[in-house]
Nucleic acid binder design. Structure first.
Length: 448
DNA sequence: CGCATACGCGCC
DNA sequence: AAACGGCGCGTTTGCG
């Protein structure tokens, strides 16, 4: 059970996850307030039981193969040095490639690359982020190797080398899951952050191969399928989206079919990608500008698609408006479980701040309920594992990555145990639609 | 020299 | 220019 110190920290965070208020360190007072604000379920049924589970996860850690990391570090170093040479040659002089300021000077002053369409940063320098560099990729030969350099340097300096140093004498890496670190109810992971290990790039995959299951064990990765969109459909009670999930349709395809007013069979991959961006954008409160930027459309087209989206899924629009109005009246938003986030700026006369608060308002009940669900699943699952006397001996919960749980399971019970966990996760909460979990099994984190 | 900030970027 | 929600972290740069 949690210490009073820990309980106080949790209670204060639940009362005010942005930590903007000055709350007393008096547990009695805090718990009284929790009751008054309808936060008992969050406090007593979710966060308090979760605390010891996170402690166990930290203690057990995840096994990492130092030899693989060492090998990757050497390989990356070779690539990075070669890219540096090439880039300095094209620039005509060496400079600090990791300095956006210096890089900007080289690109746009020394080499005089056309800066049309490249935004300036607040320091006045032209942006050199991946979006900007991609835009000028065809304007000079130096750009492509810079993009390559960025990717490789990032993976080496942020992941490979620090992770190597964090392997303990037990051969494992022990992240800290922070229970009071987010404003929406999610967990975060620190020192190292194991919630943002690369997965998409080729080198990211190689890195994940360094995370390995203990001898005689395998990894089981279970991730909720489209959990935030399912939560959105359910919370907003959008019949069209609910039906799609009930029928286990490809949700992005269905969205494209609606937005483009064509049958599902006629949806192209490009249309589906656009619909996918829209679906995620809706959860984040994306406007026409951001949608245009990420989709490659112009502003007018982007606006048109957003409008079409909300006419097809009118209940979602209505829910968003209702949620923002409630926030204006009460000063907070909440998940179906009562988890709250106070939005001080929702009535701000500063439109930028008010609009920012509105986006937080429509995001938090979705992201927060998804977080509630996976936390409930963690608690229910661990209870079962303890009953079966598997906990820590034959099964360890290693990581929680927002919509995914990574377990290490002894091979003799692997299949039956993984299926059991899957059922627990799917049954953790009842929405208007089924909750689906994907299961993957492998000996390392790249192969799950 | 340490610290805060800006920038950039990995993940969900 | 930016305004797409939630995080943690490495490097550079400017300041005290």
């Amino acid at each position: 059970m949690a210490t009073d110190r820990k309980k106080i920290e949790l209670a204060k965070w639940i009362l005010d996850p942005d930590k903007a208020q000055q709350l007393p360190d008096d547990l009695g007072l805090l718990e009284k307030k929790i009751g008054e604000l309808g936060l008992d379920k969050i406090y007593r049924e979710i966060e308090l039981p979760l605390a010891p589970i996170l402690e166990d996860m930290k203690k057990i850690g995840i096994k990492a193969d130092a030899r693989i990391l060492d090998k990757l570090s050497k390989e990356l170093n070779k690539e990075i040095v070669e890219l540096e040479k090439k880039i300095y040659g094209l620039a005509g002089l060496p400079f600090n490639l990791n300095s956006p300021k210096q890089l900007s000077e080289i690109l746009f002053e020394k080499l005089k690359i056309d800066s049309a369409g490249i935004p300036r940063r607040k320091t006045g320098a032209f942006s050199t982020d991946v979006e900007a560099l991609t835009k000028i990729k065809d304007r000079h030969l130096i750009v492509a190797p810079i993009l390559d350099y960025r990717e490789l340097f990032k993976i080496k300096s942020t992941y490979i080398d620090p992770l190597r140093e964090l392997i303990g004498r037990d051969g494992r890496i022990h992240t800290t899951f922070i229970q009071t670190g987010t404003s929406t109810g999610r967990l975060s992971s620190q020192n190292p952050n194991l919630q943002n290990i690369p997965i998409l790039s080729e080198w990211g995959k190689k890195l994940r191969e360094a995370f390995v299951a203990e001898q005689g064990f395998s990894f089981a990765a279970l991730d909720y399928s489209q959990i935030e969109l399912r939560v959105l459909a359910s919370v907003a009670q959008d019949e069209k989206m609910i039906e799609a999930f009930k029928n286990d349709l490809d949700i992005h395809k269905m969205t494209a079919s609606n937005v483009f007013n064509i049958p599902v069979e006629k949806v192209t991959p490009e249309m589906r990608q656009l619909a996918k961006t829209l679906n995620f954008g809706v959860i984040y409160g994306m406007g026409p500008d951001a949608f245009a930027r990420t989709s490659g459309l112009n502003r007018a087209e982007a606006s048109k698609f957003i409008k079409e989206y909300f006419s097809d899924f009118a209940d979602i629009k209505r829910w968003q408006e209702k949620t923002i109005n409630m926030a204006r009246q009460t000063g907070y938003v909440e998940t179906l479980n009562g988890r709250k986030r106070w939005l001080a700026n929702i009535m701000s006369p500063n439109r930028r701040l008010a609009a920012e608060a509105e986006r937080m308002a429509i995001n938090m009940p979705i992201q927060g309920l998804a977080a509630d669900i996976i936390k409930i699943a963690m608690i229910k699952t661990m209870e079962i594992l303890k009953q079966k006397n598997w906990h820590m001996k034959k099964i360890r919960l290693l990581l929680s990555i927002h919509d995914e749980l990574l377990f290490e399971i002894e091979d003799d019970i692997l299949k039956q145990a993984a299926d059991l966990i899957k059922k627990e996760m799917e049954g953790a909460y009842t929405l208007a639609i089924p909750i689906k979990v994907n299961l993957a099994i492998g000996k390392n984190w790249a192969n799950v």
